[in-house]
C-alpha cells in the first residue's frame, strides 16, 4: 500500500501524535479502557510499532517502539478533554481501527479519516432536548406516575436540561452544572405539591432529576474494574458518585425551599 513514491513513510513522531490523539478522543467520548487499548494497539501494529498505554482520568501516557529497530522509541503524555459522550466517535474509530488492520491502510488515509470522524456534527440540540424530556416523562410513567405527573416532569426536564446545555456550553464546572440543573428541574416538578394537582406528585419530584444520572460513566467504571483496570475504574466511579451527590444536593435544596421535608 505504501509503494506510492509520493507517500513518504511517516516518522515515529507523526505516528505517535496520531495514535495518542485517537486514544484521547476515545477516552473523552466515553469508551472503556480495554477498548481504547485494543483499538490503538491494533493501529500501532499495522504501522509497524509496538505500543504500551496507560490511561488515567485526565491524561494518557503512551510509548511506541519500532518493531524492526527497538532502539527507536518515543514516549508521549497528552491531556484528555473533559468527558463529552459521543458514541458515534467510539463506534467509528473502532471500525477504523479494524479497517486499518485488515486493509493495511497507510498513515495519511487513517489521519484524514480520523479528522473526518471527529469533526462530524452532533445531533441537533433542540431535538435532543425534546427527546430527553419525553424520555424522562415516560420514565415517570414507568414508576406509576399519572398523566399530570408526567406533564410536570416533561416541563421540568425541558427547562432543567436546557440549563445544563447552556452551562456546558459556557464550560462551567460540571459539579456546579449538575447541582443547578437538578435544583431547577426538581423545583419545577415540585410545583405539583404546591398547586395540589394530580395524585402522584412525589413520583414527579423523584423522577424529575433522573435524566442527570451518569449511567454511562457508572457502567464504564464497573466494566473497567471487572477487566482489571482498577485505578481508572475507581477514578470514573468517584466522578460518577460525586455527580450523584450533586444531584441529591440540588434535589434536597429545592425540597427545603418547597417545605417538603415534613412529608
Amino acid at each position: 500500500m505504501t509503494d506510492n513514491p509520493f507517500n513518504q513513510e511517516p516518522t515515529i513522531e507523526q505516528t505517535a501524535v496520531l495514535l495518542i490523539d485517537i486514544a484521547s478522543a476515545l477516552m473523552s467520548s466515553g469508551a472503556h479502557t480495554m477498548r481504547i487499548i485494543q483499538n490503538v494497539s491494533r493501529m500501532a501494529e499495522t504501522f509497524g510499532y509496538e505500543l504500551d498505554l496507560s490511561v488515567f482520568q485526565l491524561s494518557i501516557m503512551m510509548t511506541i517502539i519500532n518493531k524492526e529497530n527497538p532502539g527507536k522509541l518515543l514516549t508521549q503524555v497528552k491531556k484528555i478533554k473533559p468527558l463529552h459522550l459521543n458514541f458515534t466517535i467510539v463506534s467509528e474509530l473502532s471500525a477504523l481501527s479494524w479497517e486499518t488492520y485488515d486493509k493495511h491502510l497507510p498513515y495519511d488515509a487513517v489521519r484524514s479519516d480520523y479528522h473526518k470522524i471527529i469533526s462530524k456534527k452532533r445531533m441537533n440540540s433542540w431535538l435532543v432536548l425534546f427527546l430527553v424530556s419525553a424520555a424522562n416523562a415516560s420514565f415517570c410513567g414507568l414508576f406509576k406516575g399519572d398523566f399530570t405527573a408526567m406533564a410536570f416532569v416533561f416541563f421540568a426536564t425541558f427547562i432543567g436540561f436546557s440549563v445544563r446545555q447552556e452551562m456546558m456550553k459556557k464550560h462551567i464546572n460540571h459539579l456546579v452544572t449538575f447541582t443547578s440543573s437538578a435544583f431547577v428541574a426538581s423545583l419545577l416538578a415540585g410545583m405539583g405539591y404546591v398547586l395540589h394537582v394530580g395524585h402522584t406528585p412525589e413520583i414527579a419530584l423523584a423522577s424529575s432529576v433522573l435524566y442527570l444520572i451518569p449511567g454511562v460513566p457508572l457502567i464504564n467504571s464497573i466494566l473497567d474494574i471487572l477487566q482489571g483496570h482498577i485505578l481508572t475504574g475507581i477514578a470514573r466511579l468517584v466522578n460518577a458518585v460525586s455527580l450523584i451527590v450533586c444531584i441529591a444536593i440540588g434535589l434536597f435544596t429545592s425540597m427545603l425551599i418547597l417545605g417538603l421535608e415534613k412529608l
Binding site: L85, N86, R122, V128, S138
Partner: peptide, 14 residues
C-alpha cells in the same frame, strides 16, 4: 423504549 431513545441521544450514538 421512549425512555431509552431519550437517554441514548444524550451520548450521540449512530
Amino acid at each position: 423504549a421512549i425512555a431509552a431513545i431519550g437517554f441514548a441521544v444524550i451520548s450521540n450514538p449512530p
